[in-house]
C-alpha cells in the first residue's frame, strides 16, 4: 500500500502547474524514501526532475516501490476539484495499481477521486551528481522578469558568469542588450544574489524553455542556476522541507 498526505495540497497543485507545459505523460515513482519523477519534454531539450522526501509529508507510507504512469492533463482535471487550502492524500491499494486515489480534505468537505493510471514506456536517464563550475542564487521573480524582457529581443539568451556576478545578454535582428545582476547579501534571504564561480561560463539557451521553467517560481522565492561550460544548465527550486524541482536545459553549442 502507498499513501502520501500533503499537509499543504496547494503545494502539489503548484508543482503540477509548474511542469504541465513541459511534460505530458510521466511516471511517478514512489518508494520508501519518497516520491520522484523524471521526464523529458517532447523535443528532448529539457528534463524535469522532481524529488519529494518522505519526511516532508504529513503522512507517508510505501511498502513496495511502485511506478504510476499519469497524464498530467488528466491529473490537473482532478486537482481542479480541490481547494488551494485542502490537504491532499494520494493512495493506491493494490501491488500493481490501475488507479491512483485522491482525497481532498478541507474543514467542511471531503472529496474522493480515482485517476486511471497508464503504462508508460519511458526512458530513464542517469543524471550524474556533478560539481558545477558556476552556481548562482537569485530571486526567482527577477530571473522570470529578465527572461521575459530579453525573450522579446531574441529567441536565444546568453548567460555569462564571473566573480562579479551574472550577466544575461541577447543579440537579435533589432539590436542587442545585456542585464547584469549584482551580488548582494541583503538581510532579506529572498532578495539575495550569490555567485560561486570556480570557473566562468558563457552559455547560450533557448529562452522559450526558461519562460516555461519560470512557472515554477511559485514554489520558491529563490532560484539556483548551476552551470558548467557546454553542459546542460540546472535550474533548481527548493521546495521547503520537502525536496526540490530541478529543470535541466541543454545548451546551444557552436558546431
Amino acid at each position: 500500500m502507498f499513501e502520501a498526505k500533503f499537509e499543504d495540497g496547494g503545494l502539489f497543485k503548484k508543482i503540477v502547474e509548474a511542469i504541465k507545459e513541459l511534460v505530458k505523460n510521466v511516471n511517478l515513482e514512489a518508494n520508501g524514501t519518497g516520491i520522484s519523477l523524471q521526464a523529458m519534454d517532447t523535443s528532448h531539450v529539457a528534463l524535469v526532475a522532481l524529488q519529494l522526501n518522505e519526511k516532508g509529508f504529513k503522512k507517508y507510507r510505501c511498502e513496495k516501490s511502485l511506478t504510476m504512469g499519469l497524464s498530467i492533463e488528466n491529473l490537473q482535471k482532478i486537482l481542479k476539484c480541490s481547494g488551494n487550502d485542502d490537504q491532499i492524500t494520494l493512495r493506491t491499494q493494490d501491488e500493481e495499481p490501475t488507479t491512483l486515489s485522491f482525497t481532498f480534505e478541507s474543514k467542511n468537505r471531503i472529496s474522493e477521486f480515482q485517476l486511471n493510471l497508464m503504462s508508460l514506456d519511458q526512458e530513464q536517464l542517469g543524471v550524474p551528481d556533478t560539481e558545477y563550475s558556476s552556481v548562482v542564487r537569485m530571486p526567482s521573480n527577477e530571473f522570470t522578469k529578465i527572461c521575459r524582457e530579453l525573450g522579446n529581443i531574441n529567441e536565444a539568451i546568453g548567460i555569462e558568469t564571473s566573480k562579479e556576478g551574472i550577466k544575461f545578454y541577447v543579440k537579435g535582428d533589432i539590436g542587442e542588450g545585456q542585464v547584469s545582476v549584482k551580488i548582494n547579501d541583503t538581510e532579506k534571504p529572498e532578495e539575495r544574489v550569490e555567485c560561486e564561480v570556480d570557473e566562468p561560463v558563457n552559455l547560450s539557451f533557448a529562452v522559450r524553455y526558461f519562460n516555461l521553467f519560470n512557472k515554477a517560481s511559485a514554489l520558491s522565492s529563490q532560484v539556483i542556476l548551476s552551470m558548467s561550460q557546454d553542459q546542460p544548465l540546472v535550474i533548481e527550486y527548493i521546495i521547503e522541507e520537502m525536496g526540490s524541482l530541478k529543470l535541466y536545459l541543454a545548451p546551444k553549442i557552436n558546431d
Partner: peptide
C-alpha cells in the same frame, strides 16, 4: 551558428 543540443547527448540511459 549555434546548434541546440539534446539532453540524451549528455546523460546516459539507465
Amino acid at each position: 551558428l549555434k546548434t541546440q543540443q539534446s539532453i540524451p547527448n549528455f546523460f546516459t540511459d539507465m
